[in-house]
């Protein structure tokens, strides 16, 4: 899955692009796992360029969240569009993650 990445103040910021659906979930999980296993334990996934997420994408976020917990790491999410917010809210997944309106707010939380 296409994504951008940068680092700020020791936080790895990931920007998935397009659709985090059944078709892209596996590669996204592999890429994120590599980043975490490579030593990034403060991770922010910013959804500013993400249009769509399905339950396959939610599952990846759970896997990465658990992986970070094992490493005493932290995961934050930010910049969800209205529809993605609704999916998190309906599924109850919003209770599982630290979710911020903006990337700046999320960064300040680390």
């Amino acid at each position: 899955m296409e994504m951008k990445q940068r680092e700020e103040n020791g936080v790895a910021i990931i920007y998935p692009i397009g659709n985090l659906d059944f078709n892209h979930a596996t590669t996204f999980q592999e890429d994120l796992t590599k980043i975490v296993e490579g030593g990034a334990h403060k991770v922010l996934i910013d959804f500013v360029e993400l249009s769509f997420i399905s339950s396959a994408g939610l599952r990846v976020l759970i896997v990465i969240s658990k992986l970070l917990q094992q490493k005493n790491g932290t995961l934050a999410l930010s910049s969800m569009n209205e529809q993605i917010q609704e999916v998190f809210s309906i599924s109850g997944f919003h209770k599982l993650f630290s979710i911020y309106q903006t990337e700046a707010e999320a960064l300040a939380s680390f």
């Binding site: 339950s55 599952r59 759970i62 658990k66 309906i90 209770k95 599982l96």
Partner: peptide
């Protein structure tokens, strides 16, 4: 519990 939800179950619920 949220952590134990199966992906298929979440999909059906959505």
């Amino acid at each position: 519990p949220l952590e134990e939800r199966k992906p298929g179950g979440v999909g059906v619920y959505l």
